[in-house]
Amino acid sequence: MSRIKTILTNGIWYENPIFHQVLGVCSALAVTTQVKNAIVMSIAVICITALTNFTVSVLRKIIPFSVRLIIEMLIISTFVIVFDQLLKAYYFEMSRELGPYVGLIITNCIILGRSEAFALREGPGLSVIDGIASGLGYTLILVSIAAVRELFGAGKLLGYSIISNPDYHARGLASAGGAFIVMGILIWIMNAIRRVGGEK
């Protein structure tokens, strides 16, 4: 049980993929203009990381070491393309909003990183938990950045108007440059909290 707890706290906090390992930053900047987009993207990453970790873990004893990267990439690509197709079929508007970024999950280092660092060594059950934990870590950051950008950039949250002045619009925050600044400040805050709370 404590093992599971360690995996979860590591993925979400101590070894957060974006803050601690600085992986998956490209998509974190691109899809965080709205909380809704960030949530769908996060669900995609959680599902794909968990499924990839599970599959790699099940196959870990028969995957030859020399071709493991090829096989991991095959598995990741398959899950990503399936998810992309399902999104196009059942949530077309969202798939247009997210544009190329769902497909680009294939190149998201979090997923390959977790299957290399964890799934190749551990059993399927723990690997699924590790995948979900890393995905949740990604979600935490994505939704935080998106909330700041949507609230202060467009005056809305999840599409509902919060700042009622209709002329309110901070284009700087809605742009990719604004995302960099928000992310920098968030990394700073989280690292400060981590330091006060004491290193693990």
């Binding site: 995957i63 030859p64 020399s66 071709v67």
Partner: peptide, 10 residues
């Protein structure tokens, strides 16, 4: 073996 397994996965 590596080739065969990769092909099966593919």
């Amino acid at each position: 073996k590596a080739f065969v397994i990769t092909m099966i996965v593919a």
